[in-house]
Design a protein around this nucleic acid. Structure first.
Lengths: 282, 282
DNA sequence: CCGCATCGATACCCGCGAGGTATCGATGCC
DNA sequence: GGCATCGATACCTCGCGGGTATCGATGCGG
């Protein structure tokens, strides 16, 4: 199975429309039809049920869509990591660390400082990305190592080391009735009239339905809270970068947040090993 | 990057010899040289330093070897799992469960019985393999789910659920001086003259150096112990399938063994989910 | 009920590139 | 210095990927 065939199939499986898929791939529709048919012939498997009016995935097609995406990510990762390994100086290849924007800022700063002080440290580029994108970044090679936050992020398919655990606090506008309390419960927060939890984007970029404003990053979030339009439950460490006009109150019954350092299991570079070692010693 | 190019490069990188690699691939040497050169040109990266007398990997080449193997495994997995999904009946696709021969036999039997009793259960094929091969089986699609034993097996890159934890026992020939003790320590076992720990094969098939007989499976192991030529520290559950002539004694300070059920993180089939659910309820 | 628009499949052609053979050029060895 | 080894180069061929034109099925509006 060639990656070209896989890319073609994945495009059709995602669009469920040969014409649009061909357009996305930058080729004409007939070669695409032929390539998918040939893939089916070679596998001996029907992947799509097609009429001139609709295209639907078979059971086997769904499997190949999921497995094929993973395989294509792995190929992309091989490509990117090889290029990066080449342009960095031998033995000190640079690392790309990815984490959610606005999370674990202090920990990250300490980690970068401590690692930079190590003998033979590689350069570390920091890549900030949206919620839930880190795993993909690691899988397709755009990043080598990530800071993740359990239980929000999934560590499926990654090696991890636990770094720290912290409680959660609710961020409220200054002057809010609850803002003088020494602690609150989740039930009290969800019951707040006019201060809904904001909606974060899902991995595919869409927003869940429901009340509450749509929020893409922490700057938007803090501004909305300051405006009295939202509240948010966040790890304690968010306190460090708090805007004036906002107050935090510990939430007694929110689950603890564990920050972990995560990396793809097969990568075994000296630079990565050094960074992980430094992180666990913090 | 096409899988064909990757396969070619991996073959050369493993053989470090264009002629042999070409032979292994079933093509002539010149097209192979050209294909690798073209891959290097497209990546803009030197992967191999070649003279007419030797071929060695560059730093970037090592990276591509590791990442490329992973990518090729992912492509193989996509192929195999798609074929299997097609030939099994819709909605009840069969599962392949892999585990070490001679381990967790009782647990496995209970799991298979319990799962078979579930409504809509898929057929489960059991595949027994050597030590350390399970991870590869999961990664390249020859298996869908595995029973692993921590801390011996690595769960890198896999989703897992913990099933049970047990202590370890030492297996000794009946009549051995220690065999009447109620428990022993690791130190006492390693100090035993004439009863060395046997050597197990590494993932690549070679054996570590040192004293002690080479052992490939548990039948060989038990026979050697019965002959008084070896001893072995194993999980308690090995007791269930013990040959006559052998005695077990608990080891007080050996690390506990945790049996986990593990699967590739992106697979989300109903059958697999059902099996995992059944396993966690045991 | 018929004309029409949509969409995947088919027919056919072209050019690139993958694979083959023959050979060269460098290099280590006897 | 002759020779064997081994990767690179030259050159040819043919299969296949990609293009255009068109067909055949199907759902829809008048």
């Amino acid at each position: 199975m060639e990656t070209r065939e896989l890319r073609y199939f994945v495009a059709v499986a995602e669009e469920l429309h040969f014409g649009r898929a061909a357009q996305r791939l930058g080729i004409a529709q007939p070669p695409l039809s032929r390539a998918v048919a040939q893939l089916e012939r070679r596998l001996g498997v029907t992947l799509l049920e097609r009429t001139s009016r609709s295209v639907v995935l078979t059971e086997a097609g769904s499997v190949l869509l999921a497995e094929g995406r993973a395989a294509l990510d792995a190929v992309d990762a091989a490509d990117r990591r090889t290029r990066r390994a080449a342009l960095s100086v031998t033995g000190s290849s640079g690392l790309v660390l990815v984490t959610k924007a606005g999370a674990s800022g202090e920990l990250l700063a300490k980690l970068l400082d401590a690692y930079a002080a190590e003998p033979g440290a590689a350069t570390v580029d920091v890549l900030l990305c949206g919620i839930g994108e880190q795993e993909r970044m690691l899988r397709d090679g755009r990043a080598d190592v990530a800071l993740l936050h359990l239980p929000f992020d999934s560590t499926a398919g990654l090696d991890t080391e636990e770094l720290c655990t912290e409680g959660q606090v609710v961020v409220l506008p200054a002057g809010h009735p609850l803002s003088t309390r020494s602690q609150v419960t989740l039930a009290e927060i969800t019951a707040l009239p006019g201060l809904p939890e904001p909606r974060r984007p899902r991995p595919d970029g869409t927003f869940p339905d429901g009340p509450g404003p749509q929020v893409r990053d922490s700057a938007q979030l803090y501004q909305l809270i300051a405006l009295g339009r939202a509240s948010a439950v966040l790890p304690e460490s968010s306190r460090a970068q708090l805007n004036p006009g906002l107050v935090v109150v510990p939430v007694s019954d929110a689950p603890a947040v564990t920050t972990v350092i995560a990396w793809p299991p097969h990568s075994r570079s000296r630079a990565l090993a050094g960074l992980v070692r430094t992180a666990t010693r913090l």
